[in-house]
Design a binder for these strands. Structure first.
Length: 228
DNA sequence: AGCTGATCATAT
DNA sequence: ATATGATCAGCT
């Protein structure tokens, strides 16, 4: 249960193997962290606990969680059937960016290498008793990358044309845009429909469970094949 | 029941 | 205000 930064993907996966199957209360005890009664006022607690357990380094900076090896850590809350319960936050939407290229985008860079860490998340399991699952080190395959790229282009085009208020969470196959702020009264600058600056609620890019469920399934198929 | 829009905590 | 970590909860 060390907390220094892993120096290779192998080292990172080794640590994940050590904590797989452990309960959150065990991890918390080892790190001298208190387990809250629930997540209502501690929504990021599980993610932050696992960052510490695995030696993630970036904190709240705009850097990969494991800077040395360029890997992003994402916990994946699972229901009783082993399916994702929630969408996955990726990053803030750049509401003033015009002419940004997909190749240079935060979305593409953050998603180029992700360590998915499934965690039991059924509400009837007490927080401390929820177990960590088997980690999945993932990069988008060709089709996933193509779909993410297309979603991003459509959404970013609307933003650059001043159509931010027209964007709904219903858009996008894998990637969607939703509010991302303390509340709906927080404001930031965006592009208006005549190119002027307007105020709007900050937004974030999120991955639909359609994609994360796919990632889980292909990892399981891979495991079954290896065992077979 | 699933999804979208809203919200909570913390660091800089 | 903006970034990180996300989940909540009302509506369809």
């Amino acid at each position: 249960m060390s907390s220094s930064a892993p120096k290779s993907e192998e080292e990172l996966l080794g640590r994940c193997a050590e904590i797989a199957g452990m309960e959150l209360s065990q991890l918390a005890r080892g790190l001298n962290v208190t387990v809250p009664a629930n997540l209502r006022q501690h929504k990021g607690w599980v993610g932050q606990l696992l960052e510490r357990a695995l030696g993630a380094s970036a904190g709240s900076l705009s850097e990969p969680d494991f800077q040395l090896i360029g890997v992003e850590l994402k916990t994946l809350p699972l229901n009783r059937h082993g399916q994702p319960r929630e969408s996955t936050y990726v990053c803030t939407v750049p509401l003033r960016a015009v002419g940004e290229r997909w190749e240079d985008s935060w979305v593409r860079n953050k998603l180029s290498r992700v360590l998915w860490l499934p965690v039991e998340s059924e509400p009837d399991i007490p927080l401390g008793r929820r177990r960590v699952g088997q980690a999945i080190l993932w990069s988008p395959d060709e089709e996933q990358a193509r779909i993410l790229h297309r979603d991003w282009e459509e959404l970013m085009e609307m933003i650059s044309l001043g159509k931010i208020e027209k964007i709904t969470a219903k858009q996008g196959v894998y990637l969607q845009i939703r509010p991302k702020a303390a509340d709906s009264h927080v404001h930031t600058h965006a592009i208006g429909d005549t190119g002027e600056q307007v105020l709007t609620n900050p937004r974030g890019f999120y991955l639909r469970t359609r994609l994360t469920a796919e990632i889980l399934n292909s990892a399981h198929r891979q495991t079954a094949k290896t065992r077979g």
